[in-house]
Design a protein around this nucleic acid. Sequence first.
RNA 1: CGGUUCGUAGCUCAGCUGGUAGAGCACGUGACUCUUAAUCAUGGGGUCGAGGGUUCGAGUCCCUCCGAGCCGACCA
Length: 582
Amino acid sequence: MHKFNGNYMSLSEQEQIRRESLAELRKLGIDPYPAAEYKTNVFARDIIDNFHPENNKFNDVCLAGRIMSRRIMGNASFAEIMDSTGRIQIYVKRDEICKGQDKTFYNNVFKHLLDIGDIIGVKGHVFKTQTGETTVHVNELTLLSKSVRPLPIVKEKDGMLFDAVTDPEMRYRQRYVDLIVNPHVRDVFRKRTQIIQSMRELFNSKGYLEVETPILQPIPGGAAARPFITHHNTLDIPLYLRIANELYLKRLIVGGYEGVYEFSKDFRNEGMDRTHNPEFTVMEIYVAYKDYNWMMNFTEEIIKKAVIDLHGRTDITFDGKKIDLNPPYKRISMLDSIREHTGIDISGMDEDELRKVCTSLGVKHSPEMGKGKLIDAIFGEKCEHHYIQPAFIIDYPVETSPLTKMHRSKPGLTERFELMINGKEIANAYSELNDPIDQLERFQDQLRLSEKGDNEAMFIDHDFVRALEYGMPPTSGMGIGIDRLTMLLTNQPSIQDVLFFPQMKPLSQNLKTEDQNEDYIELGIPEGWIEPLKKLGFTTIAKLIEVEKPAKLANDLNVFNKKNKLGLPGLSPQIVESWLKK
RNA sequence: CGGUUCGUAGCUCAGCUGGUAGAGCACGUGACUCUUAAUCAUGGGGUCGAGGGUUCGAGUCCCUCCGAGCCGACCA
């Protein structure tokens, strides 16, 4: 009955059994992968939430989902199926799904040929069991998709998980498995989408326009970062994957829109850790006739709406820390912040003086760092991590803010803020620089930084300057890191937990040294014996020809043949010896 | 890129100072008509991440490589 062929050899026992079940089902005239639509009329969640035995509204339900557990007891069984909304128990009784004399469908199909992981549809009525569990009493069961690979088994009792899949390798590389067996993971991603929807709703209610701008850019602008580079064949030019969409969105403000926004994937060619992925999502929004003070209020509104839409409240817990996102948020200038946390007033200092401050504070610095980067380093090292509760850090040095309008009253500073929550930057915004002459000079300053060795300095975008020359209204723009906001609002410590498919190093294929089947055939070895040989450890010809006792090998192979019911003709020691001699 | 811990059955994990690999769940077979981490009986399943070295003998010790986590460096 057990049939094995070459392809089966590399499969585990359980996979082989499932493939046999698949064939058996077909033999019984059951299509394991039917094409027809399966019309359901309810979800598991609806039933669980709304079933009351006294007024049963669920006398004729039809739902579909994946079998997650089974408890078979003779002629009746319980199982759990899981649909997109959750799990529900089903009760399958032999004489209920096999109305006539033929009990094959229960005794063979349900009990033996179906497995955990299979996707089925059931029809029936809902009742409560003696132990009080809401259950679907099944009178018709349809196989919708056969699973031939065993799922990790996660059991649960009183909210405690047993054998939960926590291995990051499995969870991130095979996210589909993670989503099946870890329902809270599915929930995190649902929340991620809710956050985006919440923001989109707010922007649309204000009449702002959702737009799309190029991902492939000839000049990667709008941020200080190292880009990915690619090549366009027909144009024969390099193109960069965008590091930001800022300059394109501002062109659209020049073009006359009142407000534009985009949820955009950006790409930065940098390292990866628990808060960085090479591709990530940023929401950027630009609104005409506003300044950064207005944008601070608007940012508070965005965050507040998002957290209330998600949790119904503004206080959250992240990594064990209580954070309250109810506005207004603290506002403090960068220089005041540095004074507060270091006791040093750096206002008006030149590059040399700043360098000395860095040294005295133990903040690392290097010669190519300009004034702005030095101040940034002090803030990053000494201040940033203190802002657990939301706080706007405002008025950044001009050197690190080449796209930002000069401060209306504070010389050397710009009208820029970053929103810090849990010691991390969540949002970044400016009163946008709209003076084309100033903008060109700032770009040229960046070029000088670049020549000094700063490989993150911005490129000059002459077309963007030209756009500003036509005139851009006073505008405020803001960007929010969607991944980090999602981490914060869903209490996930790693960016990998809020990205469906975080970047992972590819696994190198075929690290195992294994010779080709043709090499074995050349030695006169029949094809059927190749897999058995490899299974026994002779994965290369070199290993094979070292064998000193051909008789023992012949015996081992014959035992393997019998054990696995391969049905190959027996081998004599002489035949095996003849392979080794070639 | 540096430090550190880890990689054993489909899954979760044991495996002490080197001596032919174990458990639970899952899987196979049998029993059982309201179970729920179902239960009872019984059986199968592993080139111990890959390659090399030391040894009579390596899952275990040493080296190299491949992946992953954490901590640092760089960055949003």
